[in-house]
Amino acid sequence: MAHADPHDHGHHSHGPDHVPHVTPLPIYLKTFATLVVLTVITVGASYINLGTSVNLALALIIATTKACVVAAFFMHLASDHKFHTAVFASSIVFLGIFVAFTMFDTSARGQFDAQKKNRPAQMTDPFAKATAAPSAAPAAAAAPAGATKAGAKP
């Protein structure tokens, strides 16, 4: 915030001078050690199969811990203005909104109509299977879910 110290053609500062906040060396070294240890853990964990979602969650938790450590100590958020933390956090919040809301679409397609979940096996002839076997088409149309299984999605 601006201080009540107006100086008309302010050149050489005679206002409050800047005094840095110097972080002690051990904190940097401990931060670094934490990062190295966490890297080893995350690489090690990737060799153990815990199920894909557990592996993903673990990797993300470790990455987030590392990121927090970097932000707090290397980037001085721990000792800096709280506002800077808020600014940085806002980017994460809005990124979260972006990913989450997009996922509402991409992972919920076909909720009410199984056909929408599928993708054409071949873009240039999306209804190819039905054409190949016209006699089966009415049945396929009645039960579209299985008819055009594109194999595109798990």
């Binding site: 109509d113 056909q115 929408k116 599928n118 993708r119 054409p120 873009m123 999306p126 055009t148």
Partner: peptide, 9 residues
């Protein structure tokens, strides 16, 4: 919308 590589209904 009629979208390539997608079915809409």
């Amino acid at each position: 919308d009629v979208v390539p590589n997608l079915y809409t209904t």
